[in-house]
């Protein structure tokens, strides 16, 4: 009997502990959103104001853009091809299979081109940035840079942000073309459609805004990919393990943010 108040306290604590945990987690999430926002503001400022390290920007343009070409190209080709098959089968249920080229075109340009290209970059580029900057942090190279009167935000972060924001739309444009070509190949080779009519249908139907809205998305996704890579690398703690964690974190967080931003932007664009 005497133990009762005690056990009630213990019980209350047990019952409430998930609540406290959620409260703490919420605070932690709010704090990290604040830290990311601050980092993003500093990075943006460094990217938009002189001084620019053009050599570094050039290097990143090639590392982020050029070296991602094969990955993005292949992803787009297969996605376009598979999309064509799916829409053909689905469309045939209500005799709408002839609209396949148009639907593939709109699906690729407005949605899959930018999203697939961005997700590929989340895996390839965000991870590479996080591990490189994380390793530099762990071995005091970033501290050394500061002592050499060079701002790491200008020398390291800004070039990566700029390169990703510039290159992802270009890669997306390429993904659009290759994705539609993938659909065309399936249409012509597998489904016996006329090559000329397929192109005609796509071309007549597609509006500028379909492509443009996809490219705007891509620029935003590029910002996310570079930001998550840079941020997670920059705050990495604890040597090689910390760098490993930062890399995973960069990939996961940029993928989730890309998909969330995709929905937000889509709902914004479809209201126009």
């Amino acid at each position: 009997m005497a133990a009762r108040p005690d056990s009630e306290v213990a019980l209350a604590a047990r019952v409430l502990s998930p609540v406290t945990a959620i409260g703490e987690a919420t605070l932690e999430i709010a704090a990290s959103i604040g830290r990311v926002a601050l980092f993003a503001a500093k990075a943006t400022r460094a990217a938009l104001t002189p001084r620019w390290y053009f050599g570094q920007i050039g290097r990143q343009l090639s590392a982020i853009g050029f070296l991602s070409l094969p990955v993005v190209g292949m992803t787009a080709a297969f996605t376009g091809a598979a999309l064509a098959l799916n829409i053909w089968t689905g469309g045939s249920r209500f005799n709408a299979e002839e609209a396949m080229p148009q639907i593939v075109a709109i699906g690729i340009t407005r949605e899959l081109g930018p999203v697939m290209a961005a997700l590929m970059l989340a895996g390839r580029v965000s991870a590479a940035i996080a591990s490189e900057i994380g390793a530099m942090k762990a071995t005091e190279q970033i501290d050394a840079m500061v002592t050499l009167s060079t701002d790491p935000f200008r020398y390291l972060i800004a070039p990566r942000m700029l390169a990703a924001v510039i290159m992802l739309p270009l890669l997306t444009l390429l993904a659009d073309i290759i994705g539609i070509a993938g659909g065309w190949l399936v249409g012509v080779r597998v489904l016996d459609m006329s090559p000329a009519i397929y192109i005609q249908n796509t071309w007549d139907f597609l509006q500028d805004w379909d492509v443009e809205s996809g490219l705007i998305k891509a620029a935003v996704f590029g910002f996310i990919v570079a930001l998550m890579g840079c941020y997670n690398g920059y705050v990495a703690k604890g040597g090689a393990r910390g760098v490993g964690r930062a890399t995973t974190q960069a990939v996961v967080s940029s993928a989730i943010l890309i998909l969330a931003a995709d929905y937000l932007l889509t709902s914004l664009f479809t209201r126009i």
Binding site: T139, Q141, D143, A144, T147, L148, S149, Y155
Partner: peptide, 26 residues
């Protein structure tokens, strides 16, 4: 100027670019 205990050399740059980092970039 600062010499770090662990060296803290930029491993993506050659030796001379490391040494000249301040001159070139700052």
């Amino acid at each position: 100027g600062m010499l770090f205990q662990g060296g803290a050399l930029f491993d993506s740059l050659s030796v001379w670019e490391n040494v000249a980092f301040r001159l070139i970039n700052a």
